[in-house]
Design a protein around this nucleic acid. Sequence first.
DNA 1: CGTAAGACTGTATAAATATACAATACATAC
DNA 2: GTATGTATTGTATATTTATACAGTCTTACG
Lengths: 156, 156
Amino acid sequence: MKERYSRLSVVKELIKSNRIDNQDTLLSLLKEKGYEVTQATLSRDLKMLKVGKISDGWSGYYYAMPDNDLVSESEKSYIQDVRRGIVSIEFSGNMGVIKTRSGHANSVAFALDTLSLPEILGTLAGDDTIFCILREGMTKEDLLESFKTRIPEIEE
Amino acid sequence: MKERYSRLSVVKELIKSNRIDNQDTLLSLLKEKGYEVTQATLSRDLKMLKVGKISDGWSGYYYAMPDNDLVSESEKSYIQDVRRGIVSIEFSGNMGVIKTRSGHANSVAFALDTLSLPEILGTLAGDDTIFCILREGMTKEDLLESFKTRIPEIEE
DNA sequence: CGTAAGACTGTATAAATATACAATACATAC
DNA sequence: GTATGTATTGTATATTTATACAGTCTTACG
């Protein structure tokens, strides 16, 4: 059951190297590669990879990795910053206190800001501690969830 | 019945200035602007505008003008080259002979190459004449059709 | 061990989008 | 005028994609 991430990168490759315009096609290609899943799963994979469907400029549409495959590079490094820096997260009401390795608070906070997570209203960083305020209506579960969703983006 | 193009530019504006993630929403916005059409028509409009649906980076997808809104600028100027330069087109079998204004053959041919129309296999330009070879299976009607589809892209 | 929580997936279905077909409106050539 | 071709659209439907729900597997913890 741990094959999801390897599948994700295959999907990514397939999308990069082929002109695919629907999930069924992608499904077949995946099958050739040895991954047999349903359309539902694939739909979820695509969402996780942030794949878009864009015009080929004339007659149709095809799947493409986000524009940000460049931006994504930097985004990845932000996520790395977050991963490398964070020591712990705790919450109290709509406030979160993130502990980081010494001196890392700023880079982590900056990364969090840049990622502009919908759950975070704002951050304030010291040396090894970040205060972060959750947006109205958001819970710590939402934030942690969001973190988890972001993590798979890291690979290669 | 000539309201399509004005509607197209409104759609474009709406897409640029809002985060729209489905056609029904867009349909309502259009209605507010005084354009009342069906989802089917809108779907066709979006295709003509080459609108894509891309990830917002976290929870969902929204419509966006093609990346090429930049490239599109240059593409527009190519199309302009074509429009300004072409005098006539005639065909014989899978060959087309495009007459241009004197000295324009090269810029038109270059533009045609750059637009990489699926119908055209290759071009060869003199001073006021371009030979162009249709791709296997393509007809002159296909090419003319393709031209027409491209033209609306010019506006503003 | 048992239980709880979460990740991952398939099935069935809903939601969203695209299109075949027919109708209508124009324009052009006769 | 009429006939013919093309553009535009709506209706109805097909195709494509997303998701609610339930089931399985794994992990962590007592």
